[in-house]
Write a protein that binds this DNA or RNA. Structure first.
Length: 281
DNA sequence: GGCCAGGTTCTAC
DNA sequence: GTAGAACATGGC
C-alpha cells in the first residue's frame, strides 16, 4: 500500500519520543533503485506493519484495508501539518527553526492504555531505557504474533498487568514505577477508571480523570492526552520544554496565538531540543 | 563513577 | 496548596 504525503518523515516520527515501539529494523534494496532504504517497523497495541519512505512516497507493507482502517488515522495522514507550520509567528525565530527542523513529525493517534503505561514508565527515565522496558513488558506479558514473517508481541492487557506479580515486574528493570503500573492496571481492569469514557471526554475532563491514576501527574497526563487522545491543546512540560521555556520564552509561551494546536508545536520544540545540532546553548 | 533521564508521590508545614 | 525529600535503574 503506497501513499503520497507531505510533512511526513518516518525517521523523525520514530525519533520523536512519542512512540516507543517503532524502530528501524533493516535496510533493503528497492527494485528500481540501487540505494539501500531503511525499513521501519511500527507496533501499535496489537497491530504491526513495516514501512519504507522515498521522498513524499511512503510504502506500508499491508493491505489497503488495514491502511484505511487503522494506519491512516494512526499517522494522522489527513491533517495538513504544513498549514499548521505556516501559522507560526514569523518573528519567533526559535519556533520557526524548531518547526522547520521537525517538519516531518506527526502527532500519532496511539492506544490509550498503551500510552498510559508507556508514559508512566517514561518518568525520570531516558528514551533508550523506556523502549527497553516496554519491549520487555510486551515480551513477558503480551501475546506473540507473526505477520509477513515478522515476529512481534502485542502490548499486554490491563488484566495481564493486574495479574503480574510485583517481583516479576521488578525483574524487568522498571524501577520504582512497577508499583505504579500494577496499581494503574488494577484500577483500569476493575473499571474504577473507564478508558472508553475517557476517550469521549474533552481535554480537561480527560486530564482530570487520568490524574487519578497512580503514577500519572501533570506531565504524563498531558502526554497521554496528546499522543493517545489527540487533544492538541495538551502541552506536556518536561525537562526539555521547561529548559526552552526558561531560555527562549522568559515572558511566557504565547499559547493564546496557538489555540488548538499548541501540542504540535510542543513536539517540534521537544524534538529540536533533543536532536537539533544548532542549539548551541 | 557520578550525573541524568519526556516526574510523581509522600510527608510536613 | 506548596516545598523538599525519596524513589530504582541503566545509559553515557
Amino acid at each position: 500500500m503506497e501513499i503520497t504525503v507531505k510533512n511526513f518523515d518516518i525517521a523523525q516520527i520514530c525519533e520523536s519520543g512519542q512512540c516507543f515501539r517503532m524502530s528501524r529494523i533493516e535496510k533493503t534494496k528497492v527494485k528500481e533503485s540501487d540505494e539501500l532504504t531503511d525499513v521501519y517497523e511500527i507496533i501499535a497495541a496489537d497491530k504491526y506493519v513495516t514501512a519504507t519512505q522515498h521522498g513524499n512516497v511512503v510504502s506500508f507493507n499491508c493491505l489497503e484495508e488495514d491502511y484505511n482502517n487503522f494506519w491512516k488515522a494512526y499517522f494522522d495522514i489527513e491533517t495538513d501539518y504544513g498549514k499548521i507550520i505556516s501559522k507560526i509567528d514569523k518573528k519567533d525565530v526559535y519556533l520557526c527553526n524548531a518547526a522547520d527542523f521537525g517538519n516531518g513529525i506527526r502527532i500519532l493517534k496511539q492506544d490509550l492504555w498503551e500510552m498510559i503505561i508507556s508514559f508512566i514508565i517514561s518518568q525520570r527515565n531516558n528514551i533508550k531505557r523506556i523502549r527497553k522496558c516496554i519491549k520487555l513488558l510486551c515480551e513477558k506479558y503480551g501475546e506473540e504474533k507473526c505477520i509477513n514473517g515478522y515476529k512481534y508481541y502485542t502490548f499486554p492487557t490491563p488484566e495481564a498487568l493486574f495479574n503480574a506479580n510485583i517481583e516479576d515486574l521488578r525483574a524487568l528493570g522498571l524501577g520504582y514505577r512497577d508499583t505504579y503500573i500494577k496499581k494503574t492496571a488494577e484500577s483500569i481492569y476493575k473499571l474504577e477508571t473507564n478508558l472508553s469514557e475517557i476517550a469521549e471526554m474533552s481535554y480537561l475532563e480527560a486530564k482530570e480523570e487520568l490524574l487519578k491514576l497512580c503514577g500519572v501527574g501533570e506531565k504524563v497526563a498531558d502526554c497521554i492526552c496528546l499522543f493517545a487522545l489527540h487533544h492538541l491543546d495538551a502541552f506536556p512540560k518536561d525537562t526539555h520544554i521547561n529548559k526552552v521555556l526558561d531560555e527562549q520564552y522568559k515572558q511566557g509561551f504565547p499559547f493564546d496565538k496557538y489555540k488548538g494546536f499548541a501540542g504540535i508545536l510542543q513536539q517540534y520544540i521537544f524534538f529540536y531540543d533533543l536532536n537539533g545540532k544548532m542549539n548551541n546553548k
